[in-house]
Design a binder for these strands. Structure first.
Length: 869
RNA sequence: GCGGGCGUGGUGAAACUGGUAGACACAAGGGACUUAAAAUCCCUCGGCUAACGCUGUACGGGUUCGAUUCCCGUCGCCCGCACCA
């Protein structure tokens, strides 16, 4: 037995079947033990898993198996984020149905995930494209519609001309569609929206309660919500024949600078601009010009500030008799605040750029600390920092904060057009979540448009509104809309002809509640609240940081909306969040500059230099930088091949070793081989250890002491590995397991006594359990060899003997002036004066002191000694 | 520009609340076993030095008996947001 190498190809499928047959990972909702819910972000069924999945699911599986070993009732499900555009694209390319393509991919990926030996409860598997799932989403949509959490409104939307669909603001990155990469256009469409902005304040404030989330993600969400407090302020328009409007409302966060105002600015999309442009062709041209730049130019920041003088003037609200010009300016956004501002060039860079260009006045009203009020001037840079107000009549001398308060009170007490002139207001950058998508492969929005009754929800008894099967994709655009009959219905209320809504929901809706559905995946209601409330929030959620805003913010909103409609009784879906790093690999290029896959090349190393050549042609290949694995750079490694060659345990182990999980990890051939070697080492160790049982032992004097030392290491490892797994420091857990293995291997070589042999056997057994969350198949094989009953998958995490963690002696480093010169071993807790005396009698210290008395001796008991001379 | 993070050997990295810098692994070099290879085992491995030693955690200062860790400044890299009034 011991001579045989461990063969993962035989053993891994065997144990996977054993777990399946024993239903080892099926979780019962009525299990009374403490619950623990661990979830990895579910995958899009692209057809193949990649190394990023291997890393993600390995981490989740370690957490799941560890907590199961700690005696908890663990929920660890898996499903498929199965709606979305790639299926439609595949349908066009291959003339198949998006559904059949998707389900084939699911089968293929499921087989791959199963080969990884994950402790997943597959009885809870869900696919969001199944009516079993999306009917509940439709049902909740209706609940939310009735609760006033959904609206339909006409708005300017981001239109992706390649995917021919609408995108949410969050899905536009650098002016391009997040998926297609095409420059996004602006269009006016009637859309369905979730009223996420109603929850802006709550979503912002609750971030503080998410203490187990990375600070980075919380910051990103905070910025995205973008809260700003300011003042809505009315400017009176001087009577003019150009307009009937009597006032302009602006939003400002700097009302303290009102005395420095030199113009009022309007967005090119402001209603007043539109009205003025109707009778002013030059202004109309200017607006068109702004739009051209607004969408086509990516580098908005570099675009020059431009303005157009409308000829209107407004009364200066605090300087009697003064008036200000009204400009339309290209940098003012319609969808923030009121779409109008007042410009204070001295203290805002954009305003300053505009003022310099058109010769408007620049009057400083905030004096930097230490500056001289008489001589202070603004050059080409606006002053935006702290200071005291000056040049501002009744605000003079106040701090910015105090001036803001005072001026708000001042305007609050005055009226323009019968309204309060100034109102304190909080603004958010977060917009409502537009969910209409003009696509077939998504969850149908369950409403109809009746000629008589208007837009009304489909009755719940008629759900699901199923997607038609017989669709064609020969025309661009929405196949659902093109379907000859699907959308034609009769109103369930009045019987009049009606039209089904042909928009489907953004796929981010699907992923906003799947974690709740997993708690009762077969229920005939969206959730079973009592069950969901018991499992949720997810204790540990693990996934990529690329979802820091979109998915995580939507899920937080949706959970609140589900709470408002009685489907769950909590607000925050994810208690602990962990964002893992990417998997990277070296890149390779041929002389012709084409990317080459790692499997096609041969690397030769001589000393420290590595060269590569093509496996077949022998042509030289240049080794490039380390990049995220991607198809385009061909630096991908296929998990299937790795599992076939080395086994799943090796792949899992390597993905957990070396790099901290939140950082990127580099996939290397040498690294995998190291992991594979370790697998064999453990196998050999366990097999050799077991032979000790059959041999007679000799008694030696040092035996007891050696055994105790070994047992200390064993217990420290059990303790440390557990701590590291709980803290998700998998790389350190791995390092500790290496140390334990090294110690046991060494002990095995020299052992002679009974006690040491017993300790080695104890170590082999505990090592097996420590290993089981990471290399579960190997651990089962070792468990079997050790002759233990049952499965290690069901074994309890070893108890730590607290006495083994504390040593009764301690070795203190002895420093002289902060440099280590000697060490001294004393009983733990030896008082400082005693230690000092011992240290001063050390040969090394006596030699260095040369008879002189030390200036000072610092003794930190059980830690360190520092002699200062 | 704003916000956040990071900078430690040839490489990935450890170092708990300020207390022996480089655990653990990879790579490299040397040796043992072998007809040979693979596998395995042993040794070396931050820099300078023959050695005693000296020096070293991006760089420059500071606090401290003692700093990878705390503070100030500089440089570099990464990520997010970006005309948000």
């Amino acid at each position: 037995m011991s001579g045989e190498r461990y063969n993962p190809r035989e053993s891994e499928p065997k144990w996977q079947k054993t777990w399946d047959d024993a239903k080892s990972f099926v979780t019962a909702n009525d299990d009374p033990r403490e619950c623990y819910y661990v979830l990895e972000m579910f995958p899009y069924p692209s057809g193949r898993i990649h190394m990023g999945h291997v890393r993600n699911y390995s981490m989740g599986d370690v957490v799941a198996r560890y907590h199961r070993a700690r005696g908890k009732n663990v929920l660890h499900p898996m499903g498929w984020d199965a709606f979305g555009l790639p299926a439609e694209n595949a349908a066009i390319e291959r003339k198949t149905h998006p559904g059949s393509w998707t389900y084939q991919n699911i089968e293929a990926m499921k087989a791959q995930l199963k080969s990884m030996g994950l402790s997943i409860d597959w009885t809870r598997e869900i696919a969001t494209c199944s009516p079993d799932y999306y009917q509940h989403q439709q049902s909740m949509f209706i609940d939310m519609l009735e609760a006033g959490l959904v609206t339909r409104k006409s708005s300017k939307v981001n239109w992706d001309p390649v995917d021919m669909t609408v995108l949410a603001n969050e899905q536009v990155i650098d002016g391009k569609g997040w998926r297609s990469g095409a420059p996004v256009e602006q269009r006016e469409l009637t859309q369905w929206f979730f009223k996420i902005s109603d929850f802006a304040e709550d979503l912002l404030e609750a971030l503080d309660t998410l203490t187990e989330w990375p600070e980075k993600v919380r910051t990103m969400q905070r910025n995205w919500i973008g809260k700003s407090e300011g003042l809505r302020l009315l400017f009176e328009i001087e009577p003019s024949d150009k307009t009937d409007a009597t006032s302009i409302e602006v939003f400002t966060t700097r009302p303290d600078t009102i005395f420095g105002a030199s113009f009022v600015g309007l967005s090119p999309d402001h209603p007043l601009t539109t009205a003025l442009a109707a009778s002013n062709p030059a202004l109309a041209d200017f607006v068109v010009e702004c739009h051209r730049h607004g969408t086509a130019t990516e580098t908005l920041e570099k675009a020059e500030k431009q303005g157009f003088d409308t000829g209107l003037r407004v009364k200066h609200p605090v300087i009697a008799g003064a008036t200000l010009p009204v400009y339309v300016a290209n940098f003012i956004l319609m969808d923030y605040g009121t779409g109008a501002i007042f410009g204070c060039p001295a203290h805002d860079q954009r305003d300053l750029d505009l003022a310099r260009k058109y010769g408007l006045s620049v009057k400083p009203v905030v004096l930097p600390p230490g500056a001289d009020a008489a001589s202070f001037e603004i050059g080409n840079e606006a002053y935006v920092d702290a200071g005291n107000i000056f040049n501002s009549d009744f605000l003079d001398g106040l701090s910015i904060e105090d001036a803001k308060k005072k001026i708000a009170e001042y305007f609050g007490a005055r009226t323009v057009d019968g309204k309060s002139q100034g109102q304190v207001e909080v603004n958010y950058r977060l917009r409502d979540w537009g969910i209409s998508r003009q696509r077939y492969w998504g969850c149908p929005i369950p409403v109809i448009h009746c000629e008589v009754c208007g837009t009304i929800p489909v009755p719940k008894k008629d759900l699901p509104v199923k997607l038609p099967e017989d669709v064609t994709f020969d025309k661009p655009g929405n196949a659902l809309d093109h379907h000859p009959t699907w959308k034609r219905v009769h109103c369930h209320q009045c019987g009049s002809p009606a039209r089904r809504e042909t928009d489907t929901m953004d796929t981010f809706v699907d992923s906003s509640w799947y974690f709740a559905r997993f708690t009762a995946p077969h229920a005939d209601t969206p959730t079973v609240p009592a069950v969901a409330n018991r499992w949720l929030p997810v204790d540990q959620y693990i996934g990529g940081v690329e979802h820091a805003i979109l998915h995580l913010l939507y899920s937080r909103f949706f959970t609140r909306a589900m709470k408002a409609t009685g489907h769950v009784d909590l607000s925050e879906p994810f208690k602990g969040l962990f964002t893992q790093g990417m998997v990277t690999h070296e890149t390779y290029k041929s002389a012709a500059g084409e990317w080459v896959n790692p499997t096609e090349i041969l690397i030769e190393a001589t000393g420290d230099t590595r060269t590569a050549k093509h496996l077949k042609t022998g042509a030289p290949i240049s080794i490039g930088s380390v990049e995220k694995m991607s198809k385009s750079k061909k630096n991908v490694v296929d998990p299937d091949e790795i599992v076939a060659t080395y086994g799943a345990d090796t792949a899992r182990w390597f993905m957990l070793s070396d790099s901290p999980p939140e950082r990127d990890v580099q996939w290397t051939e040498a690294g995998v081989e190291g992991a594979s070697r370790f697998q064999q080492r453990v196998w050999r160790l366990v097999n050799e250890a077991i032979e000790l049982r059959d041999r007679t032992a000799e008694a030696t004097a040092s035996d007891e002491k050696e055994a105790l030392g070994l047992r200390r290491i064993i217990h420290r490892s059990v303790h440390g590995v557990g701590q590291d797994i709980e803290g998700l420091r998998f790389n350190r857990a791995v390092a500790q397991i290496y140390e334990l293995t090294n110690a046991l291997t060494k002990a095995l070589q020299g052992q002679t006594g009974t006690a040491t042999r017993a300790a080695i056997l104890e170590g082999a057994e505990k090592l097996t359990v420590l290993l089981s969350p990471m290399m579960p198949h190997l651990a089962e094989s070792c468990w079997e060899v050790l002759g233990k009953a049952g499965l290690v998958a069901d074994a309890r995490w070893p108890e730590v003997d607290g006495a083994m963690l504390v040593d009764d002696t301690v070795t203190l480093p002895v420093q002289v002036n902060g440099k280590r010169r000697a060490e001294i071993t004393v009983a733990k807790g030896t008082p400082a004066p005693e230690v000092e005396a011992l240290v001063l009698s050390l040969d090394e210290i006596v030699r260095i002191l040369e008879g002189k008395a030390p200036k000072k001796v610092v003794v930190v008991p059980d830690r360190i000694v520092n002699v200062v001379v």
